[in-house]
Design a protein around this nucleic acid. Sequence first.
DNA 1: CGACTTTTACTGATCGATCGATAAAGATGG
DNA 2: CCATCTTTATCGATCGATCAGTAAAAGTCG
Lengths: 230, 230
Amino acid sequence: MATNQTRATILDAAETVFAEAGFAGASMRAIAQRAGVNQPLIHYHFESKDRLYAEVIHRRAADINGQRLSALDALIDRAAPAAPGLEDIVTTLLRPTIELGHDPARGGQHYANLVVALGNGTDERSVRLTAEHYNEVARRFIAAIQSSLPGVGRADAVRGYLYAISIALPQMARTGRAAALSDGLADDSDVETILARTVPFICAGLRALADEPGATLPIQDNKLEREEAG
Amino acid sequence: MATNQTRATILDAAETVFAEAGFAGASMRAIAQRAGVNQPLIHYHFESKDRLYAEVIHRRAADINGQRLSALDALIDRAAPAAPGLEDIVTTLLRPTIELGHDPARGGQHYANLVVALGNGTDERSVRLTAEHYNEVARRFIAAIQSSLPGVGRADAVRGYLYAISIALPQMARTGRAAALSDGLADDSDVETILARTVPFICAGLRALADEPGATLPIQDNKLEREEAG
DNA sequence: CGACTTTTACTGATCGATCGATAAAGATGG
DNA sequence: CCATCTTTATCGATCGATCAGTAAAAGTCG
């Protein structure tokens, strides 16, 4: 896996085309044209369309999840022996995501659109890649939420994490719908503005789940690995 | 627009295949095979792949939005001259969505996956169809949220609406990720369980936005250093 | 009524374009 | 020369769409 310049160029082009057209709608020829290379060269470097797609995802996911985990570790160390505050945990989870969506140098919106489709997709490829790249960080943050909010059960912590991600990803992708519906009032093009609105929303929601324990859901966190959802 | 049985059969098959493979990944032949008809018949009834896709969306959107608007009207009438409660408004918004996602007779998960991709997509087709079918109901519910929560500004009401939809749609689509991450604890296959968790979360979040109206209040205390060597 | 025409619903054959992928030859630099 | 990178040419498969043609139902008229 030599860090080739050609590889990076192809990955950037693939990221954009996959984001705009989806996996099936993106053609190797369109990717090659945007990258300024020949189509068979992509096969030389990445073998197949599937492997190219997986590498596009892996590159950004490794970046963003590395940031999230090291920031979470730093947060936990700083607060030790107490648990970090909920606002800090949620901010640490969301900030790298929102920032990546606003940083053109790292794919910007393109990867954002990709990862939204990935996280919400039900096809085998999306489910597999999502679990492969995002389950570890999910478990870490779910545990952090539980430590900071002892009243919340495991199931509600999982729900809260998924709700937080569900809110953050579309903002990362920025479809412009908020601006359209508010006649420009909610044009959230600034990272800090987005965090200032989403973090209080999510934290208040999580505390509501903790204060209002819902269905009869026991708390047990022994098994960590699991194959599939029944 | 004769209510033909063949048309409905094709629409059902198209809904499933589009949901499983996306617009580009779904082939007219695969749709025809699932519908038990031959491929040119689809062109006879729907002209083109684009029009077929639009009709698949239109059929369910008209159903679900009709339910939502009439339920909202009834809610407003019942509470008049006061404004309806926030929990009732959010429940009225989400229930038809969640229920549709759990009703196999009306497409069930299939339309759910479709509409998730539609709402999050940035391609021209997705943006156009989303605005065409969902902007009216969005404006109605945003106004209702503002009437019930006078402290919330217009921009935050829009945000709250979009956050609510962002939370509800993935649950409608049920990727099984919640169950996988919680070892089955959060297997939300029941409509009432989902509503009992999402509605309090969303309402608490909305009230937090209303109580903390500063749209320009960046959270600075744990801003991450993203510069690598800077 | 019965013969004729029109409309509707559907089918088999096939079009040109494009798909992902491969083989093999050419270029490049150590 | 050799290994790495890049290109040209091309494969078989599949894509959305169109065509002519058929069977049956519906409408028309003496």
